[in-house]
Design a protein around this nucleic acid. Sequence first.
DNA 1: TCACCTTTGAAGAAC
DNA 2: GTTCTTCAAAGGTGA
Length: 550
Amino acid sequence: MPQLNGGGGDDLGANDEMISFKDEGEQEEKISENVSAERDLDDVKSSLVNESENNSSSSDSEQAERRPQTRPDSESYEKTRDYFSEALRRQQDGGFFKSPHYPGYPFLMIPDLTNPYLSNGSLSPSARTYLQMKWPLLDVPGSAGLKDSRSPTPGHLSNKVPVVQHAHHVHPLTPLITYSNEHFSPGTPPSHLSPEILDPKTGIPRTPHPSELSPYYPLSPGAVGSIAHPLSWLMPQQGQHMYSIPPGGFRHPYPALAMNPSMSSLVSSRFSPHMVTPPPHSLHQTGIPHPAIVSPAIKQEPSGDISPSMHAKSPVPAKKEEDKKPHIKKPLNAFMLYMKEMRAKVVAECTLKESAAINQILGRRWHSLSREEQAKYYELARKERQLHSQLYPGWSARDNYGKRKKRKRENKPDSKPEDFSIRSKKQCVQYLPSEKMCDSPASSHGSMLDSPATPSAALASPAAPAATHSEQAQPLSLTTKPEGRMQHHFSIPGKASGQSNTPILTRPIPFTSLHPSMLSPPSPFHQAALHSHHALFQSQPLSLVTKPTE
DNA sequence: TCACCTTTGAAGAAC
DNA sequence: GTTCTTCAAAGGTGA
């Protein structure tokens, strides 16, 4: 049984742990959460700061020494505290959006959804933002050509614009709020856009009350035009759209209606009519389709990426057919949403550029998120899926299979566990530094290697059960579904898997993600699991361990 | 030029 | 029912 000692110098995860345990008491929850969250943030910030410092000074020891002391970002720290204070205050005020005003979730704090519509009948920024955010799936085909990374099209048209460019001038949330509100022409939202509610006054379908919809996008009314102003940081940074948008184009709140003719016809022919009902108004001037739709021809699909079957028969026709089919992207999951939001922040705070490294950090941060925080994303993701399923009833994740080039990993049959381990090791080596630099030790691999297959692992994933196509609001319910992925990456010791001798993860599930209240309700078993993991976690400070395969 | 890397979660296929 | 695979975003990296 792992010991519960503090874990020594490296207190990584310690805070996480505290969070989870403190949360055991409902009463304490609020307070402790704020405190722990604050600490967590502080911790993260410190880590990040250290990382920055580390850039100039590569000495780990120095880092270690500095960590507890330096707090160059005391100012931001104070801000953070202010956020929490504000959050607390709002919580007391009640309301759905009493989420802590974590810097990372400012978009959650611009409530005012009381009246989603402006006096002129147009959607209020809140609702609008929500709607817009509802379309992160849109991958503009019109600009499809623009998006295609392979296309010769200038990068600025691609959604793969270096985030780093203005990393320091862009608010971390930028990624999530990447829809320009400008050029928005208020109109009647598509009837298919559900959940929909008709505004009694305007008769315009509006987005449901925040309580019904994702609360993550609301922006204060004044934010509409002012978004670029006080909330300028909310604006997408140059070229950084959740989904590519054609130059000068803007993401319409109802992108689905803005599909270009061809797209529209395709979709309508593919999906149930009511889902693609033409806009009652001439909304679309940009021809921007739903973000989830991407012209297959342009996006991602190398010429030969057509489904094998089609390919085999008649490449050319098949391709044509394929071209016609809009590529409907998968709805983003909670983590993806989180990533989008936080990436810029991480990039800004760290000097990291490699997405792989950034993602490791993000992965770790994700785990360190409090239950509430994660819940928001799960909920958001759930709604995302819901909307997606409503928009594309016939869509299946399977549709996108084969859209990408298969990974080398595919040669798995050939590659033996050892190979994999070795490779993993390399990867660790490659990215660990970055991870270390910016976010503290807990390597993502750590999280990857976490024992997710354990009950706690499952717990860690509220796994927004929200069934995609058949939405059963069962948010954050406990799922015991093992994370197969883990197995395919690294098997857990003792667990039969193709890649068995793998690195052993030293870092168990982040406790914040095991927040008791995430469980519904926390069974003794879960509690035990939490404690167990917690102990383990503490006893094994974040060392990235790539188990020597030999 | 483009696959890879990395992360988590969801979905679907395979067993 | 469990396990495995693929894809979603992102952008630097290396072949």
